[in-house]
Design a protein around this nucleic acid. Sequence first.
DNA 1: CCAAAAGTGTTTAAATTACACCCATGG
DNA 2: CCATGGGTGTAATTTAAACACTTTTGG
Lengths: 230, 230
Amino acid sequence: MDLNLQKYFQAAVSVDNVVFGFDETGLNVLLIYRGADPYRNCWALPGDLISLDTNLDTSAVTVLQNLTGLQHLYMDQIRTFGRVDRHPYGRVFTVAYFALIKIEDYRVSAQSWAEEAAWFPIHDVPDLPFDHNEILEFAKEQLKMKIRKQPIGFELLPKHFTLSELQRLYEAILDEEFDVRNFRKKILSMDFIADTGLKQNAVTHRPAKLYKYNARKYNKLITSGFDFDL
Amino acid sequence: MDLNLQKYFQAAVSVDNVVFGFDETGLNVLLIYRGADPYRNCWALPGDLISLDTNLDTSAVTVLQNLTGLQHLYMDQIRTFGRVDRHPYGRVFTVAYFALIKIEDYRVSAQSWAEEAAWFPIHDVPDLPFDHNEILEFAKEQLKMKIRKQPIGFELLPKHFTLSELQRLYEAILDEEFDVRNFRKKILSMDFIADTGLKQNAVTHRPAKLYKYNARKYNKLITSGFDFDL
DNA sequence: CCAAAAGTGTTTAAATTACACCCATGG
DNA sequence: CCATGGGTGTAATTTAAACACTTTTGG
């Protein structure tokens, strides 16, 4: 490598973010409606080419904020996709990231060339441009793996939540059902959530206890890892 | 994005391969001695800038073969590293891959601008250029995670192996010790290895039975996953 | 008093752990 | 016959799985 280095320095790199959110309806993913070429006028993952003077991880955050207004969230790199023909404008490698947010805590607003930004139920996502469907599938697998290893469920739930909500979250992500008693036993024994002493109100049935997560235990488990098997 | 697209298409992408091999001495990693700038004359992971007309996964294979002569091995993408200043020649994103090989089955030979290629014990790796030490650490973590989830141990052992060899491999990778009886019980119960009927010979102690792996079960477990917890 | 979801224990089976001695070979 | 690593079983504990009824609230 010497003067013909030039030929290597002709690639672009983009970031594509898979942002998961959870609400009564289940697990959702955030998409934007593209107001720019290529693939103008279709729904896609919020992603963009990245500026070459910025660290990769920082770019992921910047791109997401620029398109959807979301900020202050934790993003995790999941994989790079690099098929030659994945982008019509040239050789573009894309690095996929994922993030989990409490829908209620954030206000999503389309910005820059994103004309809209909206949540789509995870089982009702349209055909996406580029290799975004492939990226989304990969992200879903990662999420499944991750929730079995780390207590990340809280990042998707409001500050105070019921055990039923937590169970519905696990069921939505893992796409399987759990026995109520065994689920509660397991979660409580892991000891990373604590009773707040509060209860639901204005519900038409027995009000559920509200729990919060225990940051101390949470951080310990994040590093030491655990196994959620039910 | 429009005519100023040009500014995005000035990045280069490289691949860095972390190839693990196992022998009597333990777990090793393959390094090359760089005969090209930058960082000429030092040991580094076998990696290179990639040609922009080739798919990413294919490039990983090509780069490794080009530098070390290794081919026909299975490579897994692990992560992309993209700090702005990680490469002195410009903005270079590097995609790290890892591979596992049976040292005895392959002949490593330095090629192209690699002046040497050699195995280094995993606990005795020199300071490496770029962010290669960071990449290697990350790869070691991945390997630990992976060996707990998939029966990949065989990719590092000769066709026929003893249970003690397998145990030493697990111990080397996971960096912990296991009870002989429990290890054997666990491994045999998983049913992905089979007795060959053969025994070691020319050893100065009771010869050990030789086992081979069971491809049927292996493939089933690769997809369904399992848990190695001891 | 009805509907709707919350909450709660026990029994059984399976998996994991801890632990110590005899075996087969070569020198 | 000695040194070296190979090979084996059981009991105790822990963890997972299956399973059904009572409680509390609002309407």
